[in-house]
Amino acid sequence: MTDQLPHEKGFHVSWDQLHRDARALAWRLDGKGPENGDWRALVAITRGGMAPAMIIARELDIRTVDTISIKSYDHQTQGAAQVTKAPDMDLIGDGHGVLVIDDLVDTGRTLEVVRKLLPKAHIATVYAKPKSRDLVQTYVTEVSQDTWIFFPWDLALQYVEPYRGR
């Protein structure tokens, strides 16, 4: 058996699947907010958290939506996480009643930065890897640490050879 590159053990997520999984995450979060079951605001972690956050905000009727931008990846290489755009801290405060949404927790570097900035926020991701799943309070699907998730915004439709060749 040959060693696989990180992208060779891939989990391909279609727009349809992402929509279903984001709605499943919304169902898990429904009624769980500290404001009589409601969430005061939602913060999407850009860029991956924006699509699921849009779906969750719609499903849970959350009208106050902001973003936080944290850069830690350069293509498929992860480095130190740094905030490049913070949410409106006057509005978001320490995170009490705030739902933070991302597509995936992988190494946890991004969420560690978010947790320091918003210590009372509820962090939820659509997908979680074992190394850092304890950094999120709610997620939908766990994938193995060595799986690379291909999100629909990263893909183009094209023919793929079957596993057994022609």
Score class of each variant (00 low, 15 high):
Tyr139Met: 05
Glu8Phe: 06
Tyr163Thr: 07
Asp38Thr: 10
Arg133His: 11
Gly48Glu: 04
Asp61Val: 11
Ser69Tyr: 00
Ala24Cys: 11
Ala22Met: 09
His12Asn: 14
Arg164Ala: 13
Gln78Pro: 15
Phe151Lys: 04
Gln145Arg: 01
Leu42Arg: 07
Gln78Leu: 10
Met50Arg: 02
His12Thr: 09
Lys71Phe: 04
Ala81Lys: 10
Gln76Ile: 14
Gly93Lys: 04
Gln137Gly: 15
Val43Ile: 13
Arg115Ala: 12
Arg28Asn: 03
Asp94Gln: 01
Leu5Ile: 03
Lys32Leu: 15
Asp3Pro: 03
Gln82Ser: 14
Thr77Phe: 10
Lys120Thr: 05
Thr107Ala: 13
Lys9Phe: 05
Ser132Gly: 15
Gln4Pro: 02
Leu60Met: 13
Ala156Gln: 15
Asp94Glu: 01
Asp3Tyr: 03
Asp30Arg: 10
Ala41Pro: 14
Ser72Tyr: 04
Asp146Phe: 02
Asp94Ile: 03
Asp154His: 07
Gln17Tyr: 02
Asp102Trp: 01
Trp39Ala: 10
Arg20Pro: 09
Ile123Leu: 13
Val143Asn: 01
His19Gly: 13
His96Ser: 09
Val113Ser: 14
Arg63Lys: 09
Leu118Ala: 05
Lys131Ala: 12
Leu60Phe: 09
Val136Trp: 00
Ile68Gln: 02
Met1Gly: 07
Asp3Lys: 01
Ile92Asp: 10
Val105Leu: 06
Val100Arg: 02
Met54Phe: 12
Ile56Thr: 11
Gly49Pro: 09
Val160His: 14
Arg40Trp: 04
Ala53Gln: 05
Ser14Thr: 14
Thr2Gln: 08
Arg109Cys: 12
Thr110Pro: 09
Val114Leu: 08
Arg40Thr: 06
Thr2Glu: 12
Ala81Arg: 08
Ile56His: 13
Asp74Pro: 04
Glu112Cys: 08
His12Cys: 10
His75Ala: 14
Thr84Leu: 13
Gly37Ile: 05
Ile55Phe: 06
Pro87Asn: 00
Val13Tyr: 03
Ala124Thr: 00
